[in-house]
Design a protein around this nucleic acid. Structure first.
Lengths: 353, 353
DNA sequence: AATTAGCACTCTCCTTGCGAGAGTGCTAAC
DNA sequence: GTTAGCACTCTCGCAAGGAGAGTGCTAATT
């Protein structure tokens, strides 16, 4: 967040007007004028009064004019104030909650499908680009190891983590082994390191038989990888939506925003410094205009939330759209999805052995 | 492919000019005129002669003018003729081949990484959007089954397919079972149905013990799913590239093209009707302007190729860009990647047990 | 002291007109 | 068959002008 000089607190009437300007601008994408506001909302004051108040709000930094003699447009600060103080939570209609819940339960227990569905719902409801990361443990712990002979000295290693993540990797043994030997080794190692993190495994690596030593090496390598990944697999949807917005219809900005989602390193950085930095699950965060940190998001806003069971497996929900985005709708959909996914994760993945 | 009335065959000189026009238009994105061509390529004829030939090519349907008194632009047919008859294969420089190959071998045996790398290389080299699908068997056969107790009656089923695909699914047993029982059942089933396709399994499903019956049910369900999927997982890259092209900078068209890649059903349809329809691996197919079938690709072209080992596991490489795309470069990169990936698949995934 | 009517002013946007430039097609000469 | 020359067409950029929207300010009103 950028260093802010304390902003002046608007009066009650100014707050109402600010909310109206934001609402109207989000709807129409064109600057809103005093006369228009009075007309459209049957305000109990004249356009001149509104004009005075808008001028004050402009002075305070919540609004700006694209040029002298145009209507007003919210500034970043304007959106921030709106989201932080003015936005009253709208609750998702009950029928919609039910429909969505139903869809999730129809998918069975397939995490991949949940992710796709979540991304799709987010993208549709917010009419923007969405982003969902699969549940992922910060400190992965081994739940089950399996070794499968494929050919000669090549072996497929399948690791299941506590929390349900599965990773696989094809590797080459230093000397051949039968499937029986492999299975025995896998069972041995599973028993020894059940529920252990990579540190524990690394520590107790001593003088194992040749085969076990090979396997442990890969296991550690793979767990390290899983641990260095800040998030689970990434699912995107609705990328085409952002191109429909007038502010992105041409211009460099759409490209930058898209690149942000495409490029894993940027995304990891973004997530690490926002949702993951704060521990809380279920809360919704809003980044407006890149918050001075992400240049590629200068024209955009992101709504982010974390779901899951902290300590076991958590994931992220995100929506990327123009700054002029329907925050109310987006936030309420995301809040709902976040709690729904948290429930699903808890129900199916929690380890109670 | 659309029904074509036989096109008139251009003369040798016309062919040269057509190639030059295509080349020049791809480079500059603006209509090319007779005078300019003579100047730039030191042609041994006057602009008037060129004008006559261009008029002839226009008459034949290979070129068109955006308006009277503008230069010429290739038509779809023009591109088609160019790609089919005029494009001489450029071979990728040796250093680049080596660099790319090196990168792939550095990834080890991780299919997921290969896919990402392939998508990234394709996107960068062609400066367009790329698409890679993971190796996938048309007729999946079981290689190994594993059952892992998670909690109560919940069981994680991990299936490894011949060819290396891995699928997992969380399911609920009709009555509880210990890990020992699960492992035994998994081994029993693996032994019985090793290398069998879903049909064989469905056929010999008889009076198994309760547990086995449950498991077989899911196994069949999951194999059916794998079989109904026409392709493996889809990896996209360079989506932001297409927005950089002038023809996509604004307008509906970029959105349509993006949607095509995003929407799995469209993509499956596209792949099913093109690369997968023809059996050959390694050949490169070019779709120009949607070929009358895909409306969303009206402004775009796709270059497609299939890689892998037919009958075992194959995947698809694709590039989506504006019709005014550098076909030569794209095709040569794709040809190289296709054979490289085929080698990798053959080396690591072929089953010789 | 706050509100409002009235008005001059500013700026965008759209249209119109016009000249420069690029490129063509045609004709007549080579 | 090729080319020089020329009239013609169309886009593009620029300037000028008018309509429209919206502002800020001042003076009158409540």
């Amino acid at each position: 967040m950028k260093a802010e000089l304390a902003m002046i607190e608007p009066s009650e009437r100014q707050r109402v007007l600010l909310a109206l300007v934001v609402h109207e601008y989000v709807r129409t994408a064109s600057p809103v004028g005093s006369h228009y506001l009075v007309e459209r909302y049957n305000l109990d004051m004249s356009s001149a009064t509104v004009r005075n108040e808008l001028a004050a709000l402009t002075e305070m930094g919540y609004l700006r004019q694209p040029h002298t003699s145009a209507g007003r447009v919210p500034t970043e600060e304007g959106y921030r104030y709106f989201v932080g103080r003015l936005l009253q939570e709208t609750v998702l209609p009950d029928t919609m909650r039910r429909t969505i819940t139903h869809q999730f339960y129809q998918m069975g227990n397939d995490v991949e499908q949940w992710m796709r569905l979540a991304a799709s719902v987010l993208a549709h409801q917010s009419r923007a680009a969405s982003l969902v990361t699969a549940p992922h443990a910060e400190k992965p712990r081994l739940k089950h190891l399996e070794l499968i002979n494929t050919r000669g000295r090549q072996v497929l290693m399948v690791m299941v983590m506590v929390g349900g993540e599965v990773r696989q990797r094809l590797m080459t043994l230093s000397e051949p082994a039968s499937q029986e030997q492999l299975s025995a080794a896998a069972e041995r190692i599973t028993r020894q390191f059940l529920d252990k993190s990579v540190d524990a495994i690394r520590a107790s690596r001593g003088s194992q038989p040749n085969l076990d030593s090979d396997v442990l090496g890969w296991l550690i390598e793979e767990l390290e990888r899983a641990e260095s990944n800040i998030s689970g697999e990434v699912y995107l949807d609705g990328l085409a939506n952002v191109l429909a917005e007038p502010e992105f219809s041409s211009s460099e900005d759409a490209r930058r925003a898209l690149r942000m989602l495409e490029e894993r390193s940027m995304l990891q950085d973004l997530l690490a410094r926002t949702v993951l930095a704060t521990g809380n699950v279920g809360g919704v965060q809003v980044l407006i205009g890149g918050e001075g940190t992400w240049n590629d998001l200068r024209q955009s806003s992101m709504v982010l939330s974390r779901y899951g069971v902290p300590g076991l497996a958590t994931g992220t929900l995100g929506v990327l759209g123009p700054m002029r985005m329907s925050y109310g709708k987006t936030i309420s959909v995301m809040r709902f999805l976040s709690s729904l996914l948290s429930d699903l994760v808890a129900e199916t993945l929690v380890d109670e052995n």
